[in-house]
Design a binder for these strands. Structure first.
Lengths: 346, 346
DNA sequence: AACCGCCATGCAATCGAATGCGGGCCCACC
DNA sequence: GGTGGGCCCGCATTCGATTGCATGGCGGTT
């Protein structure tokens, strides 16, 4: 293959040095702000660099310093989805992460992975990135082995997820238990007593499990025992919410509220309820989780739980950088808050 | 600042060479598939590389070859928006682009920029990326000067937008004129005659202008002269669509259909219509453009125009790579198609 | 048997910046 | 006046892979 290498007159640090009448290392030091360069020299060098439109060669710099100042953001999903079906919640988080990286002068590499691929290697190995941020809803038991490998090979990474005690790398996540409790209290406060939970609340989906646990705490505090018939599996897809509600209706299980583990599930649930001729929230109140953009556009608009995306982006990047610099950071939990709309309050 | 440089026993190509009993350059050649290495030695080297978990150092490789095999994707917006308000259409395109990059073994850097920042330099300069993909809805007249600078400094880039004859870099875009015509024909076919266009159709937003032109062509073919009172400015925000419809209603301008230049505008328009007690599509049919995820969740679901995201991602990457390798590529236009939902057909 | 040519590989230079170490210079202090 | 100590800066090396050119060996041809 012909690699048309273009003639480039890019100035190097040697060119700057020549014009400034100093040595190349001095240029390097001056531009990185080393204090072993006098202010006068530094300013002269900076002026020339600006004039020549010089910018440090990232590859040479990274090679020598063994620091790429780049982090890789890996999304993964259980299977390859249609592009338009990428989890909107993670896309929203992308904005927060890019902003935080920009603030810190970090470059951000991005990649979508299938859970079963071996995305877990190669990134830090090849010095493309100093560390990884992992985002994804997927069966946790499947991807635990990848995490273990990452830990084993000493890769620096942070993941978004349930903050548990497994200690598989650094973790940042919402306070899902607290959020579940809030949701429960909201529905109970509206007089609902038979609250169906839609989401696979087990070791495969620890975040969902946490949300369910919070709901149970709220029920317990109100003196209500959780009814297993009201717990329905669903992963974060619209169709799963639809199917779960259809099943509930087919069973004849009585319920006056639905707490879905994600907005996508909730939206599917609302569709099934509407088809069944049930009014929302008259017959059944519906809540979701995530506050994706579509949540405010449903009919009626969806009450949901908003996670702190901005904080999440900041914490993820901060925790990762701390780990890279060998300053350990404990797992972090971020508070979430209710967004009350008409799907519960009519 | 202490840069905790970790002791790393990463194997280098020298280690592989030593074990294989060959020289280091031979390892390099073997792993890149040079045909000047015998099959036997290549296989031996590959086996050892696999065993040692070797991966090529990206920085060293890029430094020497002057090729990073990385492209940078720059989103820009007119102003910094709330993270959750990032244009959903571009986020969807992100999926297509990442996939295409993965197929070609390219890394993807991503960054969000304000239109007024000087994002236009530094990326190719610093050898972080071989080329740029530019995505954004913004005032074209503002960002033309950036494009000119990019062209001037010889940066390789492709932008998504209106395919015009300005020749400011390579361009890939939907056939907006054709799509606008289709939309017009659809509405005309439903008996609508007074079609309001919501979108700033001028040199600031060439894509919107193209869509409007297509609409006018359809009107012309039906023997209808476009009414300037039915052309209303709006940029791609929900509030702008809302305001535009409010203005139309306040004017007393008669209209039986709305063709919004984007789904966000259409969603705002529907809100204004609903508030005014008008039925959709009974009183007013509404169409959008983009087919963002929320389009199917509005009430009623929104008829819109779906752009070919997968094709777009492929073409953008392909065109960019062609340009990097000095094989010029003409601008490309992709067909779009109607997605008919109940906001026009009831 | 001498010679040509090609295949496979090695040698050494190279990409551009970062960094350990040594040294000149100036000032202060004894 | 000699000496010690900072402050600034230069020299030489280094990071790890790629690449132009040289070379050794082997088979084939006349």
């Amino acid at each position: 293959m012909i690699m048309g290498r273009k003639p480039s007159n890019r100035p190097t640090s040697f060119d700057i040095a020549y014009r400034a009448g100093v040595s190349q290392p001095t240029v390097s030091r001056a531009l990185r702000g080393s204090r072993s360069v006098s202010a006068a020299t530094r300013e002269r060098i900076e002026a020339i660099a600006r004039e020549l439109n010089y910018s440090v060669d990232k590859n040479a710099s990274s090679l020598r310093s063994q620091r790429s100042n780049t982090i890789a953001l890996l999304f993964f999903e259980e299977q390859t989805l249609d592009d338009s079906k990428i989890n909107p919640f993670f896309l929203a988080m992308l904005g927060a992460i890019t902003r935080q990286c920009a603030n810190r002068g970090l470059d951000l590499l991005i990649s979508f992975q299938k859970l079963e691929d071996d995305w877990h290697v190669r990134y830090q190995d090849s010095h493309r990135a100093d560390g990884l941020i992992l985002l994804g809803y997927g069966d946790y038991t499947l991807y635990r082995s990848r995490l273990q490998q990452l830990v084993g090979q000493g890769t620096d990474f942070v993941r978004w997820g349930s903050v548990n005690d497994e200690n598989l790398g650094a973790t940042v996540g919402s306070d899902n238990v607290g959020a579940g409790r809030m949701a429960g209290e909201h529905l109970l406060g509206l007089g609902r007593r038979r609250i169906a939970f839609l989401g696979q609340a087990d070791e495969h989906y620890p975040e969902f499990a946490d949300r369910y646990r919070g709901l149970c705490e709220a029920l317990g505090a109100a003196g209500i025992a959780p009814d297993p018939a009201l717990l329905r599996n669903a992963i974060s897809l619209e169709d799963e919410g639809y199917a779960a509600v259809r099943a509930l209706l087919a069973d004849g299980t009585a319920f006056d509220a639905v707490f879905a583990a994600s907005d996508l599930i909730a939206i599917g649930a609302m569709r099934a309820l509407a088809e069944a001729g049930l009014s929302i929230p008259g017959d059944v109140a519906v809540m979701g989780f995530d506050d994706i953009p579509a949540a405010s556009m449903t009919n009626p608009p969806l009450t949901t739980v908003m996670q702190d995306l901005k904080g999440a982006g900041e914490r993820l990047v901060e925790t990762l950088m701390a780990q890279i610099e060998d300053r350990q950071r404990p797992a972090e939990t971020l508070p979430a808050r209710l967004v009350i709309r008409r799907s519960t309050t009519g």
